[in-house]
């Protein structure tokens, strides 16, 4: 089953060959919060269909990094180019990029005054100017893909955390994004609900979606990631295939981090 419904290309492309024609290119990225240097000289290329898992201790800048990609955070130095469009102060560019980049948040951030269906229809109708009927059909398609079509008429407040996060994923997919960003999507969930969300994400990964996932779910990382990277002090410390990353970590910092999250 393919989550990104209309994608005509065959699913499960080869692991990213970043040199080919990257869909995201980040060059010399630097960002400060006040005087705090939160991102330090980040260089990153993401190939279409590539699935990247970013981990690292809290405060290492991993959320800030992916939030820079859709301009929820503004960077001060360096350049970010998404699908051929460079992020500048030009609002047109920002809007164009946000249309192609979906985001799933730790706190779900569903709109509590709208039903699940209306949550999913909002952006297609108002941003893509899609007729309501078509938007509703697409919304129902994706709600079925995340296995909760029966919750469509309910309000987010009536759903469990796992269900809300699956709605949030469906809501992002309704915009037919080329890239999906996940900012610790399972960190706010009760343990028994993590799996239902990860299942949806695994399914999405299988459909060929380009994904950047900030998470500490190492099982998910080794199962679907093409590349795992660890950040610390605003820098990318190490990146590798999941196999090499987990079995043959190079830096001491990575070894320490892995030992802390795998053996607690």
């Amino acid at each position: 089953m393919s989550i990104a419904g209309s994608n005509a290309e065959p699913p499960l492309a080869d692991a990213g060959d970043a040199s080919a024609n990257p869909i995201i290119r980040i060059d010399g990225l630097n960002k400060w919060f006040g005087s705090f240097h939160v991102l330090r000289d980040i260089n990153l290329e993401v190939a279409p269909r590539e699935r990247i898992v970013i981990c690292g201790p809290s405060g290492s800048g991993k959320s800030t990094l992916i939030r820079c990609i859709n301009r929820l955070e503004e960077h001060q130095e360096g350049s970010i180019t998404v699908d051929g469009t460079e992020l500048t102060h030009d609002l047109k560019n920002i809007d164009a990029i946000r249309r192609e980049v979906g985001m799933v948040f730790q706190q779900f951030n569903l709109f509590p005054h709208l039903t699940v269906l209306e949550n999913c229809m909002l952006a297609p109708v108002w941003v893509r100017k899609m007729p309501r009927k078509e938007a509703e059909e697409i919304a129902m398609t994706f709600l079925e893909r995340v296995k909760i079509p029966d919750q469509a008429p309910k309000y987010p407040g009536q759903l469990s955390g796992g269900q809300q996060q699956r709605v949030a994923i469906a809501r992002s997919l309704c915009m037919r994004p080329k890239i999906m960003l996940f900012d610790e999507p399972t960190s706010a969930l009760d343990p028994e609900m993590i799996k239902e969300v990860l299942d949806v994400m695994v399914d999405l990964a299988g459909s060929g979606m380009t994904m950047l996932v900030v998470t500490h779910e190492m099982g998910f990382a080794s199962q679907v990631a093409d590349r795992v990277m660890i950040m610390d002090d605003g820098q990318i410390l190490e990146q590798n295939t999941p196999d090499e990353f987990f079995n043959n970590p190079q830096s001491d910092r990575t070894k320490l981090f892995l030992s802390q999250i795998l053996h607690h």
């Binding site: 929820l72 980049v101 948040f105 706190q107 569903l110 709109f111 005054h113 108002w126 941003v127 992002s172």
Partner: peptide, 27 residues
């Protein structure tokens, strides 16, 4: 209204007035 509501609206591409009218002001 939590910051997350603004961020979710912006991330899906809503403009300022759309975000205010459809998401923030109703709440």
């Amino acid at each position: 209204i939590s910051q997350g509501q603004y961020e979710a609206s912006q991330a899906m591409g809503l403009g300022y007035w759309q975000m205010m009218r459809l998401v923030v002001l109703p709440q």
